[in-house]
Simulated assay, not measured.
Amino acid sequence: MTDFCAETNPITTGLYNIESEGRTREFYVKVPTDYANSPEPKPLLFAYHGTGGSYELWLDGSYDLADEVGDGAIMVFLQATQDHNEINQWDYAFDLQYFEDVLNRLRRGIEFDAKRIFVTGHSSGGGMAHDLGCNYGDIVRAIAPHAAILKSFVCTGSVAVLQTHGSNDTLVNPGTGEAGHQFWVAYNGFDYDTTITGVHPTCIDHSLGASPYPVQWCLHAEGSGEAAHDWPSFASAATWEFFSGLPTAEPTTEPPAGGGNSAIQYDTMVMFTLEFPPGIGQITQGAISIYPAGTQQPLGGGPISIINQSFDPGEVGPGSVKNYELPIKYVNETFPGTYAFSVIIYVADGGNPIPFPGKDHIVLRDIYVNDRNTPIAISTPLVMEPIFF
Rank of each mutant, 00 (worst) to 15 (best):
H146K: 05
E86L: 13
S207W: 01
E250V: 10
L57P: 00
V363G: 01
Y213N: 13
G281M: 10
Y192L: 11
P145G: 07
H165P: 08
L45V: 09
S305N: 02
S310E: 14
E178V: 07
I283Q: 11
W217I: 09
V343S: 05
V369Y: 09
F272L: 03
D169L: 09
N332R: 10
I143M: 01
Y35A: 09
H165D: 05
I143K: 00
I288A: 01
T273D: 11
K30N: 12
E100W: 04
S310W: 05
G157I: 07
Y136A: 14
L78A: 13
G198F: 14
L150A: 15
P336K: 09
R141G: 01
Y48F: 15
G209I: 04
L65F: 06
D230H: 12
N135C: 13
A237T: 15
R23V: 01
Y28S: 00
P232D: 07
I196S: 13
A238G: 12
F112P: 07
V102E: 00
P357R: 03
N85T: 08
T197I: 15
D101P: 01
T170P: 02
Y28D: 00
T253F: 11
C155A: 10
T253P: 04
G301P: 04
T380F: 00
E385C: 01
P303K: 04
